[in-house]
Design a protein around this nucleic acid. Structure first.
Lengths: 343, 343
DNA sequence: CTGTTAGCGCTTTCAG
DNA sequence: CTGAAAGCGCTAACAG
C-alpha cells in the first residue's frame, strides 16, 4: 500500500522561493530572521499542513527524543500504571515512548533492548523479567554508556539509577499488622528465591517477627513459582500444616487471590480460620470476598519519578551519578486479616 | 549526558578496507557478493557489536517498520490486552510499536496522531476516545492516504478497515439470558448516547425484548456519563422505580460494579432483589461478590486481528479495500443474574 | 538577514 | 563481484 506523501521543507522552500535553511530557521523561531519572512513561512507551512519528519531530524541531531520502556507484561495493572506515568511525564517534556514487554522472558528482554537501541532511543526504563538472573545485557548497556534507569524489578549491584519501593518496609508493615492482630504463626509465601522482591519482602517479614521476639522458622516459609498450579499446591500444603498457621502473607496479591480461591473451594473461611494478606493492591483485591489486606504501591508515581529522573539526566538537569529513589508503600487493611477480631 | 557511541558501517568498512556499500550488501545477505568477503564482514560486524541505525535505515527506505497505537487508556485491562496482542503480532513481523493514550480526550487524540505521523509510523491502530464526536482528524488521515485501522471504539461511516465486537449480539445474548431467567422489567444502563457502543448494545437489548414481545419502555433506559457519581445516581434512581425492575443490564462492567457497590451499601441483595449483568468481563467482575454475569470480549484476539490486517495491507498481502472484522462475544453467566432462581 | 555547503547512517542505482 | 556517488529530510556552521 502506498503511503501518503508528506510535505517537506524543500517543497515549502520552492513555493516561497527561499532556501531550505531559511525554512528550518523560521520553523524553529530563530531570532536572526526577518519577521516578515518568518511570518510568511510559518503561514505557508500551516497552509500546506507541514509536519516535520522526526526521523530525519533525529538522525541529524543524533537525539531521537524517544525513550524505550521494557516491562514484564503490559496487562498487569501495576505495570500499566507505571507506563501511564511514564507516558504522561515523557510527553510533557516533548519525548515519545516506545513500549515493549518481555513476557517474563530474559531472551525477549534482550531482544527488546536490541531493537530499542537500534531505534536510537535516548534512554531506557527497564523493569526486569522474572527469568532475569544474569545481567550481562545490562552491563553491556552500561559499558556502551547508554542511559537507563531500572524500576521496580531492579538489579541491585549495577551502578545505575533505580526506583524501587521500600519492599522491606512494606513487608514489615503488613507483618506488623498481622502480629498486632495477635497472629503469631505467620507463613510467608515467597516467589522464586533469586527474585529481588522475594528477598526484600522476606527481610521485612523477618524484621517484624524479630521485633516480637519470634524466631525465624524455615518451615513457615513457602516458595511458589507463581503459577496458578503452584499457588494452589502451596495453599493446600498450608492447610495440612500442624498446628495450622494463624496468618499467611503472600508476596504478591495474585498469589493471595489464588490461595483464597482454593481455600474457599475447600470450605476454609477467611478471616475466621486464618488471616490473609497480599502485596501490591491490585484492583481485584478490593472487590474479592473478603476484601484483601494488602500494601499499596503507587505505580503511576513510580513511572513518573523514573522518567523524570532519566530525563533530568539526559537534559543535564541531574547529575550523572546514579541515585536510588525509594518510594514508600501504604498498608491497606481490609477484612481478610481480621482473624482474631472476628473469631 | 553523552550517549554511547554506536558502531557504524563506515567503521567496519574502514577496518576491513572495503566500501560501505559492500558492508550494506553483506549485512542484508545480497547474493552478488563473494562468500568469503561476506563471511568476513558478518564476522567483524558481530565482533564489533554492530547494530544498525534504524533511524537512518527508515529515512532512506521511507519505511519505519513502526506502527502507532492510540488507546483511550492503557490501564484498562481490556485495552492492555489489545496492546499485548498488537505487540506480539507486530514484533513477529518485524515491526515496532509506539503506544499513546488519549486519556479519553479528543485533543490528546489529535496530538497523538500528529506525533505518530511525524514519527513516520507506517500505519496506525486507533481506538477512539469517548469525547470523540467529530472525525475531521480521521478524514485528514484518510485524505493523506495514511494507513490506519480502527478497533473497538470506531467511527462507522469512514471507509477504513475496522475491527469490532458484535455488540448487538453480545447485548442480545445477555438480555436474552435475563429474559430466560424470567426477568421481564429489564433496565438498560447506557453510556452517553452518541457513543457507538451505547447505541449498539441498546439495539441488542431491544431486539431480545422484542422477541419476547416486550415493548420498548423508554423509562427503563437510564443514561450515565460513566463517572462514579453518575453511576451511583443511576443506581439510586433504579431502587426508587415503581414497580422495581427485575433486572439491570449495564453497558460496561465498571458501571455494574459501581451500581452493585452502591446497592450493597444500601442493603439491597443481589441476585435476591434484582438480577444484574455487565459487559466486558473485566478481571474484577469474576471476583466481586456476587460474581458478575457479563459478556467476554477477547481483547488480545482483537489486537491480533487488527494489527495483522493492517500489516497485510501494508505488505500488500490484503486488498486495500476496507473490510470490517466482527468478533463474536461469549456470555459469561455468573451468580449476579440468578434472580428468580434463588428467590 | 539569508543562501551555500556538508553531513547524520544508510541503501541503491550505475559503473566498472 | 565491488566501489563511487547520489540522496532520504533535516540542521548547522560558514559565508556573504
Amino acid at each position: 500500500m502506498k503511503r501518503g506523501h508528506q510535505i517537506t521543507m524543500k517543497e515549502i522552500a520552492k513555493k516561497l522561493g527561499v532556501s531550505v535553511s531559511t525554512i528550518s530557521r523560521a520553523l524553529k523561531d530563530s531570532p536572526e530572521l526577518h519577521p516578515e519572512t518568518k511570518r510568511k513561512i510559518v503561514e505557508m507551512a500551516k497552509e500546506m499542513n507541514y509536519q516535520p519528519n522526526l526521523l530525519a531530524q533525529s538522525l541529524r541531531i543524533s537525539r531521537s527524543k524517544t525513550l524505550g520502556v521494557i516491562v514484564p507484561e503490559i496487562t498487569s495493572h501495576f505495570f500499566a500504571s507505571c507506563i501511564s506515568g511514564i507516558q504522561d511525564y515523557a510527553n510533557k517534556r516533548g519525548y515519545n515512548v516506545m513500549i515493549c514487554q518481555s513476557n517474563e522472558s530474559i531472551d525477549q528482554e534482550k531482544a527488546n533492548i536490541r531493537t530499542l537501541v537500534s531505534s536510537q532511543v535516548d534512554g531506557l526504563l527497564i523493569s526486569l523479567s522474572r527469568e532475569t538472573n544474569k545481567f550481562d545485557h545490562l552491563y553491556e548497556l552500561y559499558n556502551r554508556e547508554i542511559n537507563f534507569v531500572l524500576f521496580d524489578r531492579v538489579h541491585e549491584e549495577i551502578p545505575v539509577s533505580k526506583v524501587t519501593f521500600n519492599d522491606v518496609g512494606g513487608a514489615y508493615q503488613v507483618t506488623h499488622h498481622l502480629l498486632e492482630g495477635n497472629n503469631r504463626r505467620i507463613v510467608y509465601v515467597s516467589g522464586p528465591e533469586d527474585l529481588y522482591i522475594s528477598k526484600k519482602r522476606k527481610e521485612g517479614y523477618l524484621k517484624a517477627l524479630a521485633e516480637y521476639g519470634i524466631e525465624n522458622d524455615p518451615l513457615l516459609i513457602k516458595i511458589s513459582d507463581l503459577t496458578l498450579e503452584d499457588n494452589v499446591r502451596v495453599a493446600r500444603e498450608i492447610t495440612e500444616m500442624d498446628p495450622r498457621p494463624d496468618a499467611v502473607f503472600c508476596m504478591i496479591d495474585p498469589v493471595a487471590v489464588d490461595v483464597l480461591t482454593e481455600w474457599k473451594s475447600m470450605g476454609i473461611k477467611i478471616p475466621e480460620d486464618m488471616a490473609l494478606a497480599g502485596f501490591t493492591n491490585n484492583p481485584t483485591s478490593a472487590v474479592i470476598e473478603p476484601p484483601l489486606t494488602t500494601v499499596a504501591q503507587p505505580g503511576y508515581e513510580m513511572g513518573k519519578l523514573a522518567v523524570t529522573h532519566l530525563l533530568d539526566q539526559l537534559d543535564g538537569l541531574a547529575s550523572e551519578d546514579p541515585i536510588s529513589i525509594v518510594l514508600e508503600t501504604t498498608l491497606v487493611p481490609r477484612k481478610s486479616s481480621q482473624h482474631f477480631q472476628v473469631k
